[in-house]
């Protein structure tokens, strides 16, 4: 995730993703890495602090399903049990390209949703 923002990939500026230091200014949360039961209340609270509309990307096998720690006593096997996930990015850890693709997919999803909402409001059949 850090590498995606660095010089080689320069992802943040190119695709309009701006990292924010506080959830109150964010509309996309990237759950990167294992979510443990100790971290879970914090993740929930962070999600609650984000203003609507908001989206969540689950980054990596650990966040998707628990990954190699699926049967651990302290790991939540999949963040989608708690939060609504828009895009799952596979990989352990995912390559920067995978994260980029995930964000592009999310942008497409938002565009399509907006398009279909517009169409249904004006009675246009696509």
């Amino acid at each position: 995730m850090l590498a995606a923002g660095s010089a080689t990939y320069d992802f943040n500026e190119r695709s309009g993703v701006l990292p924010r230091a506080t959830p109150k200014q964010a509309d996309l949360m990237i759950v990167a890495g294992t979510v443990t039961y100790k971290m879970l209340p914090v993740v929930k609270r962070l999600y609650g602090m984000m203003p609507e509309p908001k989206w969540v990307i689950s980054l990596g096998s650990c966040a998707n399903s628990g990954g190699p720690f699926y049967n651990s006593y302290n790991v939540l096997p999949g963040i989608d049990k708690v939060l609504p996930i828009d895009v799952y990015v596979p990989g352990c850890p995912p390559r920067p390209e995978a994260l980029m693709n995930g964000v592009v997919k999310l942008q497409e999803k938002i565009m399509n949703n907006a398009k279909s909402a517009f169409n249904s409001a004006w009675g246009i059949r696509s």
Binding site: T34, T36, K38, V42, P68, F69, S72, N74, V75
Partner: peptide, 14 residues
């Protein structure tokens, strides 16, 4: 600490 404790030592036993 412990927000990323995954129990690797216990998992390794299996």
């Amino acid at each position: 600490l412990g927000y990323l404790h995954r129990g690797i030592e216990k998992l390794a036993e299996t």
